[in-house]
Amino acid sequence: MLIELSQVSKVYNQGRANEVRALSGIDLTVEQGSMVCLKGPSGSGKSTLLAIIGCIFPPTSGRAVIAERQLARLPDRFLTLHRRETIGFIFQRFNILPELTVLENIALPLLPLGVTPKERKLRAHELLERFGISHRAQFPAGQISGGELQRVAIARALINNQPIILADEPTAHLDTNLSREFMAIMQQLKAAGKTIVIASHDPLVFEHPAIDRTVTILDGRIHVP
């Protein structure tokens, strides 16, 4: 298993007046090369679960093992290093820095790794070619279309060749065609061996044939119908 969560819970501001229990008793396993959708309404805990799987923070309790590393035992710095090697993120609205060029955006995860500019450019161009947007390499990211932006975000998630791709509400601001196109790319990545977890409440995503399993989250718990 590439992702193993057992009795995972997350409490924000623990012990304070504004304490919030975001997740309770989550058990989830994801096999390598599979595509899982986390479904649920806004505020249900999908993003928190995604943050734990994405090694952004460890769970408050329970056991989370991501790519053979138990998160609770990792200090913050090692969580970052592990995330860097293991996880590729695709954000809601894609979170591209609009003033940077398309190429600079894609190469952003490589900057703190000490990769040479030549190597960064080479790797970014390979992905731009793969997603058919190489002609936009030197464009400011704020000036490209929504569909191109989506491909830039996917390219950025793949630049370090991480085995796990996490996507947080990726189709929330896309039209139907672009949402279908997004899922088609995810299907290709799954076929290439990537493990993909998508948090979404968009039927185009959770009903897509490439999705192996849909997990419903309600009030911080896995909902079993």
Binding site: G54, I56, D76, R77, T80, L81, R83, R84, F89, F91, N95, L97, L108, P109, L111, P112, L113, R156, N160
Partner: peptide
């Protein structure tokens, strides 16, 4: 937002 994005993308503090 920019700082948060960089951190998610693997930038250390």
């Amino acid at each position: 937002r920019e700082i948060a994005i960089l951190k998610v993308l693997g930038w250390e503090t």
